[in-house]
Amino acid sequence: MRAQPRGHHGTADHPYSALNLRLVLATFGFFTSAVLGALALSAGFVWLAVILWVLAATALVDAVVVELRRRARRREGGGRGSLFE
């Protein structure tokens, strides 16, 4: 039994980076929280809308940080564009 498929470069000492997956999850969290916040506001739950918009802002900041890290990695010559780099 092989430890990993042939042609893959991630190892236990140097695992794949999940920056692209983290970007997808942050984007999903941003849109979901923003839409649910708007729905909560329209239903009259202002406190819930504020909490959801704070979560949306946090997800947006995370997405920006991840994108900056992805660009820096690309400048260094790494990354292949898959969910796991």
Rank of each mutant, 00 (worst) to 15 (best):
L19K: 06
V54G: 08
G10K: 11
F30P: 00
A59Q: 13
F30T: 02
F31W: 15
A3I: 08
R22C: 15
V54Q: 04
I51R: 08
Y16G: 01
L23V: 07
S82F: 14
L55Y: 06
R70A: 00
H14R: 07
G44Q: 14
R80I: 01
E85Q: 05
I51G: 06
L36N: 14
V50C: 00
W53F: 10
R71G: 15
R6E: 14
R69S: 13
A43N: 03
F30S: 01
S82C: 05
W53A: 01
G10T: 15
L48A: 11
F28S: 13
R80C: 08
R74F: 12
A59S: 10
G37D: 06
W47T: 08
A57Y: 01
V65N: 15
T11Y: 06
L21Y: 09
A34G: 00
L25T: 10
V35A: 05
F45C: 01
M1N: 03
A56M: 08
G29S: 14
V24L: 09
Q4P: 00
T32K: 13
F31A: 14
H8Q: 03
V50S: 04
A34D: 00
T27Y: 11
G10I: 07
A38G: 07
N20L: 15
A43K: 10
M1P: 02
W47C: 07
A40V: 10
L83K: 11
A3E: 13
L39W: 09
E67A: 12
N20F: 15
V64R: 12
A34Y: 09
V61G: 10
T32A: 09
A40S: 06
F84T: 03
E85C: 05
E67N: 09
P5R: 01
L25D: 14
F84H: 04
T11L: 01
A3P: 06
V54D: 09
R71L: 12
A12C: 13
V61W: 10
A56R: 12
V66S: 14
T27I: 07
F28R: 13
L68S: 11
M1W: 08
F31K: 15
G29F: 13
L41D: 13
M1Q: 03
R74P: 02
S82E: 06
R2P: 06
G44K: 02
A63D: 09
R73P: 09
A40T: 08
L23W: 15
A49H: 06
R71S: 06
L68D: 09
V64P: 07
Q4T: 07
Y16F: 10
A18C: 11
T11P: 01
H8P: 00
G44M: 13
S42F: 03
T27Q: 15
G78K: 05
A63L: 11
A12F: 14
R2D: 07
P15M: 05
L83T: 04
A34F: 07
T27V: 12
P5M: 09
L68I: 05
V61H: 02
V24S: 15
R73M: 02
A63W: 11
S33L: 02
P5H: 09
E67D: 05
E76F: 01
G81W: 00
T58H: 12
N20T: 13
G78I: 00
R74N: 03
E76P: 00
R74S: 03
W47D: 10
A3D: 02
P15S: 12
A12R: 10
A57N: 08
A57K: 03
R69A: 13
R80E: 07
G37V: 02
A12T: 11
L48W: 04
A56P: 03
V50N: 09
